[in-house]
């Protein structure tokens, strides 16, 4: 018997439209590309352009090409292409994506855009109280496209980055797209979190566990 699969891509497309319509203030995404990496560049550009098209002009997409935007590449210390940066109104980096925001990763990406656009952040109040006297932490979240738990964790870490007044920076890394990073950390499971290059956290953790780990670091 041939089994019919249900396509869910149309559901995701619908969700993108609905959720991007909720953007309040304009938001800027910076995309750093290397034109010599034609395939990756084309894929990422196509995804982000579809976000822009569905945003009622609330989404600005700044495309910086290797060799043509040296000052910005240096300012944001861009080492890989493509890199997507979600920045705040002052131009400060909040979330770095070394991953394509597609499939189940659409939800956390758009929720970050919504917060940057003026939506209230659930964790912000508690984070500000607790992280007031801490140094800046960079949280790397290693994911794969097929990982069911990853979007939840990506969302949590992203919201922490957006609600921490710059005390937390998030990096979302697809380790199948960046296998050298996976090899560096010897990763064989996802989600896999590293805070400031400390001991890894494996699997899904709750927001309060994440905050405790940040405070320990």
């Amino acid at each position: 018997m041939k089994v019919r699969s249900v396509p869910v891509s149309y559901i995701i497309e619908k969700m993108i439209k609905q959720e991007l319509a909720k953007l309040k203030q304009p938001v800027t995404i910076k995309l750093f590309i290397d034109e010599s990496k034609e395939l990756e560049t084309k894929k990422t550009l196509s995804i982000l352009k579809s976000y822009k098209e569905n945003s009622n002009n609330k989404l600005n997409l700044d495309i910086i090409t290797l060799g043509k935007g040296t000052d910005l590449i240096e300012r944001y210390q861009i080492e890989r292409f493509p890199t997507i940066l979600l920045i705040d109104a002052e131009g400060n980096e909040c979330i770095r994506y070394l991953a394509a925001p597609q499939g189940s990763e659409v939800k956390p990406f758009i929720q970050s855009l919504q917060v940057l656009s003026g939506r209230k952040n659930y964790y912000e109040e508690t984070l500000k109280t607790n992280l007031d006297n801490t140094k800046t932490s960079t949280i790397k979240v290693m994911v794969t496209k097929s990982c069911a738990y990853c979007p939840e964790l990506v969302n949590m870490v992203s919201q922490f980055a957006l609600g921490s007044s710059g005390k937390v920076k998030a990096e979302i890394i697809d380790i199948l797209e960046n296998p050298d990073i996976g090899d560096h950390y010897n990763i064989e499971t996802v989600p896999y979190i590293v805070i400031n290059n400390g001991e890894p956290l494996i699997g899904l953790i709750s927001p309060n566990e994440l905050l405790e780990k940040i405070l320990k670091v």
Binding site: V3, R4, S5, V6, V8, I11, I12, K14, M15, Q18, G103, S104, K107, Y122, S146, A148, E152, N155, M156, Q159, S206, P207
Partner: peptide
């Protein structure tokens, strides 16, 4: 007939969102 677990939950999410049911990760 056939769907991935993640895909099934996308359908649940779409239904939840269509009714504007708030969800908190905590």
């Amino acid at each position: 007939s056939s769907i991935s677990g993640q895909g099934l939950m996308e359908l649940f999410k779409e239904h939840m969102n269509s009714l504007e049911i708030p969800y908190i990760s905590d």
